[in-house]
Design a protein around this nucleic acid. Structure first.
Lengths: 252, 252
DNA sequence: ACAAAAGTGTTCGTTCTACACCCATGC
DNA sequence: GCATGGGTGTAGAACGAACACTTTTGT
């Protein structure tokens, strides 16, 4: 999310004005519509899900679609993506990443639109109800998305986002963004199994994760799911930052 | 380069028209300028280089800049990038990849421009002269780019492109795009050393590469550089495709 | 006491790393 | 015949993959 960093590239608008009196090299160039679409990932049960809504406009009314919006003049594309997620989930401070920009001429038949795709990783529980009710947005397991009718090139976007997530989750500890603060080793493993689409050995997985010493084992056990109860763990972001600064590389 | 594939998302313009008579959901949205910038990589000597030119327009006249251009109405962003490279190097069929889209509001002070960055991998020799002469574009070793004054956020673009190349070169055989058809093991190793910014063991490297059986060892030896002369190798794209289809994964 | 999930170690094979000497050739 | 870069193998360490039994506890 480079756009959002408070640096010299993106200062407060107040400090700037557009000099429209001088002719510039970009004078006479054509302008196009720009939008963002967000692949919002959430994990529950044992599978990764994605949030879709029914597209409300003809001629694709009723098709499934990613959540998106147009980019406004005084809004960075990162902010446009962030606002889309916030508007539809009520969540801010969501982990987001830009995926790819789709710019084929006729990808949207009715207008030339260039769309930048982002993915977002959110923790599902607290927002699930609000979402479904307020906006008719629903969660779909990633394994089923291929069978849905998606608008435009949204299936491509979904695939590219998933591919990028799948790659990144292996060398950055971003999987934890999808889990609650406290989680069991089984939940964590299920998450990775769903994203990577392969089963992982229980013993090898927990050995590998615990060896990194990024997780704090809590005293508390999970109740209800089993007689014995599984210990909760917490991801220690601060610890990761320290280790990363010393050259530690996360890897699954 | 998804845009360029001849698929249903990007059919011939003739088959389409924009229906401007019906009001659409995107009516009333604001349009923005879109451009592409290309990080053109080339390898010679023992280092990876990048092609830059002197920006000719005030107020950044004389700063170094990536090669770029605006996106036109009937041109995909992939084509815009491809055309930029072709216009300035005379090369088509160049390996290109989209890197990232930069969309901060004031990144270009004089106008709101959204720019998608691509990188291109080209074989330097045959074009080197033409380029330098015709357009005042010059090659800079990647280790020196940080010391140059680049226009706008072009340094960021360069860094992100290099980062993406560095990652991708490890799991896809794209390094060969930067080399001539015939190359020695030393040249190949120098290439990887320059991209990955670390030295690689001569024996281990050639073992690893040759084990993949992607290279054909030619009878011909390099002349002039040493008494003995090093054997030339050729990358067998077809062989790679076959192996990849069977699940083979390239990895350095 | 038993059912159900949690937790835990070892062995083996593969891969990675480090390292040094002889070879072929042009001069 | 000698100087120069080219080419090659082995041993030890680290890592990844496969695999099964005991523990805990609610009913």
């Amino acid at each position: 999310m480079l756009d959002s960093l408070p640096n010299k590239l993106n200062p407060s608008p107040v400090a700037h004005f557009r000099d429209t009196s001088t002719p510039h090299y970009h004078a006479g160039e054509i302008s196009l519509l720009n939008s963002v679409d967000c692949v919002i990932f959430g994990f529950y049960g044992t599978e990764l899900h994605v949030l879709l809504h029914r597209f409300p406009y003809a001629p694709f009314k009723g098709f499934w679609a990613l959540l998106g919006g147009f980019v406004h003049l005084e809004e960075s594309i990162d902010d446009a993506a962030r606002n889309t997620v916030e508007r539809l989930t009520g969540l801010d401070n969501v982990y987001m990443e830009q995926v790819y920009t789709f710019g084929a001429v006729y990808r949207v038949p009715t207008e030339r639109v260039i769309t930048t795709c982002y993915y977002a990783l959110i923790e599902v529980e607290p927002t699930l109800v609000k979402l479904s009710n307020d906006y008719g947005a629903t969660w779909h397991p990633i394994s089923k998305v291929g069978q849905l009718d998606l608008v435009y090139d949204h299936l491509l976007m979904f695939e590219k986002a998933l591919e990028q997530l799948r790659r990144k989750v292996r060398y950055q500890p971003i999987g934890f963004e999808l889990l609650p603060d406290k989680f069991t080793m089984l939940e964590l493993r299920n998450l990775y199994e769903s994203i990577l689409e392969r089963s992982l050995d229980k013993r090898n997985f927990s050995k590998k994760i615990l060896n990194m010493s990024l997780l704090q084992k809590l005293k508390e056990k999970q109740k209800g799911t089993s007689r014995r109860g599984a210990y909760y763990f917490r991801f220690e972001e601060k610890r990761y930052q320290e280790l990363a600064a010393k050259g530690f590389l996360f890897e699954i």
